[in-house]
């Protein structure tokens, strides 16, 4: 087995443990590259049948191309797809006195309301006891200490100072009422592994990841995909996966520089995660 085989085997093992351990499991799906790898691994784990619902938190600021991809994938993978919008926040009703959106609010607030709160709403409605997420250790310092099976309390809070031990592939699977478990099968994957796996398995992903000419004649691609008002493409000529991988290897140092974001952004990530963001 090569390194990708090992990562795949471990992720499949985790998905199967999760499916066994929880009666009401759900897999949030952003349609991003990691998310699509998770779909793929789920198909592998369960021999073609994904035995849990897949959840898209629709902020209503989705790129049209992403929505097209969503509908394509729903059919292609035979997904039990839940689409959740925080309608109250967008409409400014219920507990909201005004409509929440990028036009009127800062990105941290909007992300919290339209993603985290929407997730909390759907968790309350559907009583999910575990969520399969696509987070990776190498994405962000706050994720480095995560466990494969990571408990969250009723307020979605993560008690990172006192985490249960996790070793020998034995996981925390019992929860208190109101708690849920974040199952994180991609924890050990690095960004480059994700790309290599997509390349090897020929996993369909939105084409926005590949470089296209911009208005200024330069080429751009999206490195991560989120809401359109706050997601900007980066300059890049990588038009296929091999080129993306080559680009990643070359730009290793600047990638680290990119991670050391300014304090506002670093705080933002921490604030969001403390409140339940993935």
């Amino acid at each position: 087995m090569d390194h990708l085989d090992q990562l795949e085997a471990q992720s499949v093992y985790i998905l199967r443990e999760a499916y066994h351990s929880f009666s009401n499991l759900c897999m949030p799906w952003s349609m991003g590259k990691d998310s699509n790898v998770l779909i793929w691994l789920s198909k592998k784990a369960f021999c073609g049948k994904i035995p849990y619902p897949v959840l898209h938190i629709d902020t209503t600021y989705e790129f049209p191309e992403m929505l097209e991809f969503r509908e394509w994938a729903r059919k292609e993978y035979d997904l039990d797809l839940i689409v959740k919008i925080n309608e109250d926040a967008r409409a400014g009703r219920g507990t909201y006195t005004q409509s929440v959106g990028y036009e009127t609010h800062d990105p941290v607030t909007v992300t919290h309301e339209l993603k985290t709160v929407a997730l909390q709403q759907v968790m309350a409605e559907r009583k999910f006891d575990a969520l399969i997420t696509g987070i990776r250790r190498d994405e962000d310092p706050t994720r480095a200490k995560e466990r494969y099976f990571s408990p969250r309390n009723a307020e979605f809070e993560w008690d990172y100072k006192d985490q249960p031990p996790e070793f020998w592939n034995q996981f925390t699977t019992a929860i208190e009422p109101g708690e849920h478990i974040r199952v994180q099968p991609l924890l050990d994957w690095a960004e480059v592994d994700i790309w290599r796996y997509i390349e090897r398995e020929k996993i369909p992903i939105p084409t926005m990841y590949f470089a296209r000419p911009g208005d200024d004649g330069k080429k751009y691609r999206f490195r991560s995909l989120g809401c359109w008002p706050i997601t900007k493409p980066v300059e890049s000529t990588a038009s296929n996966i091999s080129e993306i991988i080559a680009e990643l290897l070359v730009t290793k140092t600047s990638e680290r520089a990119g991670r050391a974001q300014d304090h506002h952004e670093r705080n933002a990530m921490q604030k969001l995660r403390a409140k339940g963001f993935m």
Binding site: D2, H3, L4, D138, W189, A190, V192, D193, R196, R223, S224, I230, K232, V234, E235, S236, T237, A238, A246, E247, L249, V250, T251, K252, S254, E255, A257, G258, Q261, E265
Partner: peptide, 22 residues
């Protein structure tokens, strides 16, 4: 969150490092 890439830089790192294995 915007990240700056430097796609034109010539490879200096060992491009044969296949994966993240450590």
């Amino acid at each position: 969150m915007q990240t700056t890439l430097e796609p034109t830089k010539v490879p200096t790192s060992d491009i044969s490092v296949p994966t993240s294995q450590k």
